[in-house]
């Protein structure tokens, strides 16, 4: 079967197998920032934005992406400028091996779009579906909250 969808604004028309996952499809198309961690909906490494909402792409049938807009971490960068979530992650040392980073930042992008005043307790609760296996979580939480503050300031809130 064939589906049409966009990834970070780029249009794709591709042939897929009815049972394949969006994660498999995106990696096949070269979006390798979408990590295959557990392939079981537990680790969050494959997180993408599906019509703006963060989802485990390993739990999405690719066929369901027909007509959808997909966002990956590459799409957060605008005009060569890193997104505040990306920049604070680098500045505050929230990146070690980098495997979990795309998923965590995309989750954060969705959470902050829904609630720019997300507090630390809510953030920690939501991050429980995105595993990091090398740095722990302290620096990620600090970086995401710093980005949130910056984004609020930029929005004049």
């Amino acid at each position: 079967m064939n589906i049409d969808f966009t990834v970070n604004g780029r249009a794709w028309g591709v042939e897929i197998a009815p049972g394949e996952s969006l994660m498999e499809l995106l990696r096949r198309l070269g979006y390798k920032s979408v990590k295959n961690g557990c392939n079981n909906g537990d680790c969050g490494s494959c997180t993408v934005l599906l019509n703006g909402r963060a989802v485990n792409s390993c739990l999405v049938l690719a066929a369901k992406a027909d007509g959808a807009a997909i966002g990956t971490i590459e799409g957060l960068t605008a005009g060569g400028e890193l997104h505040p979530l990306q920049r604070t992650a680098l500045d505050l040392g929230a990146v070690q091996c980098g495997f979990c980073t795309p998923g965590m930042l995309l989750l954060a992008a969705d959470l902050l779009a829904a609630n720019p005043r997300l507090d630390e307790a809510e953030l920690r609760r939501e991050l429980s579906g995105n595993y990091c296996r090398c740095t722990g979580y302290v620096k990620q939480v600090e970086a995401i909250l710093a980005a949130a503050a910056e984004m609020r300031e930029a929005a004049g809130a």
Partner: peptide, 12 residues
Amino acid sequence: LAHVGTSLLRNL
């Protein structure tokens, strides 16, 4: 509902 997985799952 807040106890069912995380938003990654609840969004689907």
